[in-house]
């Protein structure tokens, strides 16, 4: 489960690709937490998340909370269809507080 990182104007962007499900959650958590503890403004790009379940969503919630605790802004961007579906069901848009753009190919 690779997380690609790049820097853009002082903002580090974590690009998560593939499934965010219980199968990948443990490995993903470890990697994600490594990044979160570094203090810098960051965005998580979810545009290539192909599948998500509760375990995946929990990770994002954890990341958000940890980031808030460390006083570093964390934004989710490019929510893929799979992410939006979970977020909708759990009514979590307000929890993350990010603007959600309807991504490519996704229907309203």
């Amino acid at each position: 489960m690779p997380i690609r990182t790049k820097k853009r104007k002082g903002v580090s962007i974590l690009h998560i690709e593939g499934d965010m499900t219980i199968g990948t959650a443990a490995a993903l958590k470890e990697e994600l937490m490594k990044h979160i503890t570094q203090s810098s403004e960051r965005e998580i790009d979810l545009s290539d998340v192909s599948e998500m379940d509760s375990a995946g969503m929990q990770l994002l919630m954890l990341a958000k909370r940890e980031a808030t605790r460390h006083n570093t802004p964390l934004r989710l961007i490019g929510h893929s269809r799979a992410v939006l579906e979970v977020m909708d069901t759990y009514n979590l848009a307000a929890y993350f507080g990010d603007p959600i753009l309807i991504s490519r190919g996704a229907k309203a």
Binding site: I22, A25, A26, L28, K29, M33, I36, S54, A55, M57, Q58, L59, M61, L62, R65, E66, T89, Y90, N91, L92, Y95
Partner: peptide
Amino acid sequence: ISVTTLADAIPAAAEMNAETFYLGF
């Protein structure tokens, strides 16, 4: 009508087990 998801039970990052379910509704 409404769903409220409670994340209160998610422990600190170090203790959090990614395969455990913490959310309440």
